[in-house]
């Protein structure tokens, strides 16, 4: 696949090299340096950095301002954008705003329901869904038009991504759902955190059988456990998360002060195994409020040095 945008991430993927992305959650306050500090920790170990958009519906500094900050630092940000909080007018406007700073990557999401956040009384918007946001960005980029049909001046040059959860129900349509996102125009995928590798392999087989691995770059999502408690929490409390019993057992089986180390070890082992799966084109490392561990994970997984592309 030839790159269609100036995105560095797209160029790396198009070159056939494994890509590595990670993400930073913006602060719950107006201290922009916090995001710069997190990005500094990981910038030499990843190709692009997602900035989450009010993840779990908890109000934070906005992803648009944060990606601009990273861009001004000379980094490659991925703008996460959810349809929960913005209608099509605001989404198109923010896309143009990001593009004006040469933000070249976007991740199109519907977003967690506001019930999980700090403002459960809020209205949600959901004027469009994540697939329709993919269509919107592609339309703006490829047709040079607004959704309303008017021409736009200087179309946004964005590499368009989305998320995918191979572990949510019903499992049997999860590959078909990805096919719909591909039909909508998605170009890269970051998956939900993978702990159940057997199930992920099964899903990837379906993806290959449908030929989707040749139409979209799939970055396998991984998240290291900090503790056995976190593993249990993810297993029992986070919707759509599949953490097998043996993983929880393994985390619980080591002393408390060694658990974080074990979590990193599991993460690295997962990456090693995922590397062998045909169609996995890179990794998305989500070290939740643990960004300082990303360099170690990348290094020990044999993913250094990161490629340079022009």
């Amino acid at each position: 696949m030839n790159p269609k945008t100036p995105s560095k991430l797209e160029k790396i993927l198009a070159s056939g090299q494994l890509a590595v992305t990670s993400e930073c959650g913006p602060p719950r306050g107006s201290n922009g340096d916090a995001i710069a500090k997190k990005a500094e920790m990981i910038k030499d170990y990843v190709d692009a950095i997602n900035i989450t958009d009010n993840q779990t519906s908890v109000t934070r500094l906005c992803s648009l301002a944060a990606v601009i900050r990273l861009k001004l630092m000379g980094l490659e940000p991925i703008l996460q954008m959810v349809t929960r909080d913005r209608n099509r007018i605001a989404l198109q406007s923010d896309i143009l705003g990001a593009a004006s700073f040469e933000i070249n990557n976007i991740l199109c999401l519907s977003g967690d329901h506001q019930q999980f956040g700090d403002n459960p009384q809020a209205q949600n918007v959901f004027d469009i869904d994540s697939m329709q946001l993919i269509q919107t960005v592609r339309y703006m980029r490829d047709e040079g038009k607004f959704l309303g049909g008017d021409d736009l001046e200087k179309s946004p040059q964005m590499f368009v991504g989305a998320a995918c959860n191979p572990f949510a129900d019903p499992f049997e349509i999860r590959a078909r759902r990805l096919a719909k996102k591909v039909a909508a125009g998605v170009e890269f995928i970051q998956t939900q955190c993978i702990y159940n590798l057997d199930k992920f392999e099964l899903w990837m087989k379906q993806i290959r059988d449908m030929g989707l691995h040749e139409k979209v770059y799939i970055l396998a999502g991984v998240t290291p456990f900090k503790s056995a408690g976190m593993a249990k929490y993810m297993k029992n409390r986070v919707p759509g998360m599949d953490v097998p019993d043996e993983v929880v057992k393994r985390m619980s089986g080591v002393d408390k002060d060694k658990q974080s180390e074990e979590g990193i070890k599991i993460c690295i082992e997962s990456i090693q195994r995922l590397k062998d799966i045909e169609g996995v084109r890179g990794f998305h490392i989500m070290a939740i409020e643990w960004e300082e561990k990303v360099p170690e994970i990348v290094e020990k997984s044999g993913l250094l040095p990161r490629p340079s592309v022009s």
Binding site: G111, S130, A163, A168, D169, P170, P239, G240
Partner: peptide, 11 residues
């Protein structure tokens, strides 16, 4: 989430 192209990842 009144998704027209669901289900979301939380089902």
């Amino acid at each position: 989430k009144r998704l027209l192209n669901g289900p979301c990842g939380g089902s």
